[in-house]
Amino acid sequence: MHPTAAVLRPLSHRVLTGSGVRYARNLDPSSRRILTGVGSRKLKPNHMQTRGILSLKDHVYFSKAEASGAGRNGIVKSFGDAPLELKMSMPKSTGGKGDGQNPEQLFAMGYSSCFLGALQLAAARANKKELAENAKVTAKVFLGHPENPDLDGFGLRVEINVEGCSDDAIIAQAHEFCPYSRALKHGAEVTVTKS
């Protein structure tokens, strides 16, 4: 198996936040303020953040899934302790039949579950376990066209809503700790191979 080359576009004109990519030209020049999902922070003039990649020193678990058939209208299988097989289908709003699951649904399910676990852990670490015991987390995953005209195809936007826990510090800690949030905020190491 040999890695294939990936083409990366420079991030020189983009500002990265915990809630995704925002273009510097779209920021309000008078305030230079970016909302990060939990609060806002002030930017210094002409201040741009570069994005690194979060690397793992080890792994304690891995999941394997395989897609076959007609891509987003094919079959996806996961392997492991509780194998799962799903029929995939493009949503009706994108011209599909909508008679199966789609990747955005699965991503939203995984993200909401993971964020809830991170929220409960953050509350327990702060000796406020009761604050998150009855919490619910909703993840909305939006599929749409990127604003950047150089990017073809689709992109994602995510909104997380926490219900039943109003402690901003605990929610912020959960957002920092959740692996899904980290992958979107810091980047994840991705290797593409062929066999």
Rank of each mutant, 00 (worst) to 15 (best):
L35G: 15
V137H: 07
S112V: 00
A188N: 05
F154G: 07
S63W: 00
A132Y: 02
V15N: 08
H145C: 09
I34Q: 06
N102R: 01
A118W: 06
G187V: 03
K64M: 10
V158Q: 08
L84H: 11
G144D: 12
Q49E: 14
H47C: 12
G187F: 05
V7L: 11
C114F: 03
R182C: 07
F79E: 01
P103V: 04
S89D: 07
S112C: 06
F154K: 12
V162Y: 05
K128V: 05
L16Q: 06
S195F: 11
L184W: 01
L156P: 00
R157M: 10
N134P: 02
K64F: 07
A108V: 05
G20S: 11
F115G: 03
P179N: 09
C178S: 01
L84P: 02
K87T: 10
T191E: 14
G18H: 12
V21Q: 07
D150R: 13
P83T: 07
P10V: 11
R25N: 13
L119D: 02
P10F: 09
I53C: 03
K140E: 14
T94N: 09
S93K: 09
V137M: 09
A65F: 04
L43I: 15
I171E: 06
Q105A: 02
A6W: 07
K57M: 08
A65L: 08
A188K: 01
P10L: 12
M48G: 09
V158K: 12
G52H: 14
C178H: 00
S19Y: 01
E133D: 13
S113Y: 05
N127P: 03
K185H: 15
L151E: 15
A65T: 15
S166A: 11
A118E: 04
L56C: 06
A118T: 04
Y180T: 06
H186C: 11
S166V: 10
L121T: 12
G20M: 11
Q101I: 09
G20P: 08
A135P: 01
V15D: 06
E104K: 05
A123I: 06
Q120K: 14
L151C: 11
A169Y: 02
G117N: 06
S112M: 02
N148E: 15
N148L: 13
L86A: 10
P146S: 14
V21W: 06
K64T: 13
L56Y: 05
A183P: 04
N73Y: 02
Q120W: 02
L84E: 08
L86W: 08
P29I: 10
Q101P: 03
C165L: 07
M90N: 03
G69N: 04
V162Q: 07
Y111A: 06
R33Q: 15
L106G: 03
S19H: 04
G100N: 08
G153Q: 05
L54H: 14
Y61F: 14
G74F: 06
L84Y: 04
A124R: 10
E159G: 04
H59P: 00
A135T: 02
L106I: 07
K185D: 15
R125S: 09
G69R: 03
R157W: 09
E163T: 03
T17N: 14
